[in-house]
Design a protein around this nucleic acid. Structure first.
Lengths: 208, 208, 208, 208
DNA sequence: AATGAATGAGGGTTCATTCAT
DNA sequence: AATGAATGAACCCTCATTCAT
């Protein structure tokens, strides 16, 4: 019975994942999720307390993974930024080392967690992720030693840009290789933008 | 009486604007909008045919403004990009000329139009804006002469990134000066990123 | 002031007549009636207590006219039926004498009273008219002396058929001459049908 | 559970039938239908997609039955008309053969379909039925060889009269035998009227 | 007399959730 | 474990009527 239970449970999770991805949490219908999972509305509630619990179930590992990822890579050196400065192609190739981690963190479920969670307890996930990324970004900027005015807000904005790029890719492509390529492009773009921004402020300060 | 009517009408528009901004069109409740405006549900329909008409009313000027803006600046020269290449500070200062137009185009209502219009006749506004921006972007890249592989997709992605940055700023800040500063940062960042991306591809091609 | 009042009042009555004719009482909108009359919703209630009172006003003369007509012609001789028996053309020409009375009784307002009054105090007008006509019919049949089984029900049914024909004509034609011609055809048809019916029962009885 | 479902479903259909019969589709309230069926508004929508689907359910068999009936009897001979000409009693007795088909076609649901469907996809049912009957009627008249001026309009008017008679009977009587008797009377009346009308025109033409 | 804003009850419909079986 | 019927609150919208101006 436990086996059977797991089968249904997984089907519900998969159906939920699809539904949440397509419609977001609030517009997702429990009836439809149950239907797609090949079971019935009522039975849904034998497996999950409510729609939100299913969402939590779908997404919880991503949350953990993301947090581990970020805490783990917090102390990652800034040398990449410095080494490859002004050499986009080098930076671009260097990114290959991160393929695995990128692929494992930036998944469809990550997208759901961040972009489809309005109405759940994770409503603030995007802000949280942005904050994480922002702190990461601030760290690097500090390492580089540049003074950027209004650093916090700028960091938030850049983080948001970074994140939205990721979400855009995940929301519009499902093929793993395509996703990976696009994310690399995005990172290159983002990296170059940051370099430019930093230099921009350096030269501006020099100008004053 | 006419005065009173205008008061309520404006209150409804303001309440609608707030509601749409916070919840998006679909999740916005006419009852709540009416309540926030200090009147009753039924009375709402003495002022607006339906929820969508209120949305239209809130947003219609933005649509016009945006289209005028883009058609007006379509033929804008690429020289900025060329002149200020590698000189972020110059680019940054050059942006000051655009303060007024940026402030007048990228407003809270612009945000509502683009980011909160799901379920209205403006559902496609984001795609439309992205297409506009993408074409603009492609034009500049052509002027510069770089060959970027898969230009259309990349353009879409970048346009999306550009727009999402704007939307993020508008969605998280209301103070006009802050918005303006962040948008300028965003443009600088974006400009530098594009330069980097273009160079990246140039050098990568050179590598092959 | 009395003059002005009458003008608006009449416009409201005319607009109401049109609206009732087209949509029936219940689906008619007071707002629209007021609008068509060139005045405002609120002002409507300065002239009429409510929608129903307007209906009453539109229709009341018809009710009186109809009742007078029927009471006046109750004692009308059956000789027409007898004289013109089996001579449809004669009957047809004889009807010319009734042109005036037919035109004055079977009007658009008569139609409204009978066919558009659902939801008003006149809901039962159709039944009432049918009963009148039925009694008239029964009277003639009695004069002729035929025994028709289930006379009351049959009378009601025939009266209904008679009335529906009239209503069909009034509801689908507005040109006075056309209406008059069609009503004459209808009466001929109806007369012949009655003759046939009566004979049918005579012969059937004879058969038994 | 399936049984219970059927019970409620049938109750809803019966309540709907009654409600539609009494008030017509548009004035019928889903809330009231559900109430009469002993359940709640929300539950109604577990059985029917919307009010119109219930209407469709109530009425769909009638539509099919009617179309089959008319297509099946399209080629019915005119000999009845000819044989029994001038012999109402014969015609009357001949009708007995049709008792079954009349009873099965002209039902309460037929009434609902034709007379209570304003606002549904069946809005045009009355026109359709009239057209059917009119064509049938025209066919017979052609067989008889009479020239009736403005045949189409006259056919429409007569068909309408025929149908209204049927509808009147169905709308005012529920006892099956009464309905059947009245319909037979109606047919006799109608038949005799037609004969009279035809002769009327013949003699009138002869007069000219 | 005229205006139209305001109200409130009602319309159809959706949906997460509960519950009896 | 499974079913789907039942509930109730919420949704948008309409409209006759009242009322303050």
């Amino acid at each position: 019975m436990q086996i059977k239970k797991d089968i249904i449970r997984n089907k519900l999770k998969e159906a939920g994942e699809t539904e949440f991805f397509e419609k977001g949490f609030e517009r997702s219908s429990v009836r439809e999720i149950a239907g797609k999972a090949g079971t019935t509305l009522g039975n849904f509630y034998n497996y999950f307390k409510n729609k939100e619990e299913l969402f939590h179930e779908v997404v919880k590992n991503e949350v953990i993974k993301f947090e581990e990822f970020f805490h783990g890579h917090q102390e990652e050196p800034t040398e990449y930024l410095i080494q490859s400065e002004r050499e986009p192609a080098a930076f671009y190739r260097a990114l290959d080392e991160f393929n695995d981690v990128l692929t494992s963190v930036f998944t469809r479920k990550f997208y759901i967690w961040v972009a489809c969670s309005k109405g759940t307890q994770f409503s603030n996930s995007k802000d949280m992720v942005i904050r994480y990324i922002g702190e990461h970004f601030i760290g690097h900027v500090r390492d580089v030693g540049t003074m950027i005015p209004d650093l916090d807000n700028t960091a938030a904005m850049l983080s948001n840009g970074f994140l939205d790029g990721i979400l855009y890719i995940l929301g519009n492509h499902s093929d793993e290789k395509t996703v990976n390529d696009l994310i690399k492009n995005h990172l290159l773009f983002f990296f170059m933008g940051m370099i430019g921004l930093i230099e921009g402020f350096i030269s501006e300060v020099a100008h004053d």
